[in-house]
């Protein structure tokens, strides 16, 4: 279980239902290596999103055994884990007055703010691990609000093919495609080890979907592992495709 970047064993998800519990999947196993892009497909309602939120430890109805770079998930606080294993929801939720604020939001949180992280971390062993990782693949070298000036955000967005997005724009003025790319940029700038992208190209036109695919393949080339839930036809970016159907992963 230690050779892969991320391993999951015995993943089980059961939703509460009127007639007891409804099992979505049981005993699933999954591995992914650095730099891989895995497409997760399957009929709607098969539990793809539940599986990804379970990987990010965001799903209260799921449990299982997971490890990242050979370390068990229990060694991480939920915040440390989610910093490394980042779930990107299908619906972009952009919090802030303007695009620059939106993208800076993760850096205002305690987990990326060393002074506060010392007090909130429960697992002492994982402390140093959780904070070691400050270099962003997009070039920003510091954590914290001050370390992400507008110019850095600008160059990052430009590098991602988002020249059309003005930093001073209010989030609700963005088009659907722009909002999806800002949401993606926000998570990518936090530089997770594993990105769980839940249908981020759904509802986008082909042009925007292609942009998103290019951004993700760039991230993978720099060592990020990516799992994508997709309903579009294969775009040639994925290294492999797995199907979740009737509780089985193939």
């Amino acid at each position: 279980m230690s050779t892969h970047l991320f391993s999951a064993r015995d993943m089980t998800c059961a939703l509460p239902a009127p007639e007891g519990e409804k099992t979505i999947f049981r005993g699933l196993s999954f591995d992914i290596d650095a730099g891989e892009i895995v497409d997760l497909v399957g009929p709607s309602g098969s539990g793809k999103s539940s599986l990804l939120t379970a990987f990010a430890r965001l799903n209260p109805h799921a449990h299982g055994t997971m490890s990242l770079e050979g370390r068990a998930s229990a060694e991480f606080s939920p915040q440390q884990w989610r910093r490394m294993v980042a779930y990107l929801p299908q619906q972009p939720v952009l919090i802030g007055e303007n695009v620059a604020d939106v993208i800076r939001l993760p850096w205002t949180l305690a987990i990326r703010n060393e002074r506060h992280a010392d007090n909130t971390d429960a697992a002492s062993q994982s402390k140093s691990y959780g904070r070691r990782h400050h270099r962003s693949i997009w070039g920003s070298t510091h954590s914290g609000t001050d370390a992400l000036p507008d110019s850095t955000i600008r160059s990052t967005l430009d590098a991602m093919g988002c020249e059309d997005i003005d930093l001073a724009r209010a989030p609700h003025d963005l088009s659907g495609g722009q909002a999806a790319r800002v949401s993606l940029a926000r998570t990518l700038l936090t530089d997770p080890k594993l990105l769980l992208a839940d249908e981020v190209d759904a509802g986008l036109d082909d042009d925007n979907a292609a942009k998103v695919a290019t951004i993700l393949s760039h991230a993978a080339q720099r060592g990020m592992a990516v799992i994508r839930i997709r309903h579009r036809p294969p775009d040639g970016v994925a290294t492999r495709t797995v199907t979740l159907d009737k509780g089985v992963l193939r």
Binding site: P78, R82, L88, Q91, A110
Partner: peptide, 12 residues
């Protein structure tokens, strides 16, 4: 949705 997004980004 906002709470879920914040948690996913590592918020306590």
């Amino acid at each position: 949705n906002e709470v879920d997004t914040l948690l996913a980004l590592g918020a306590t």
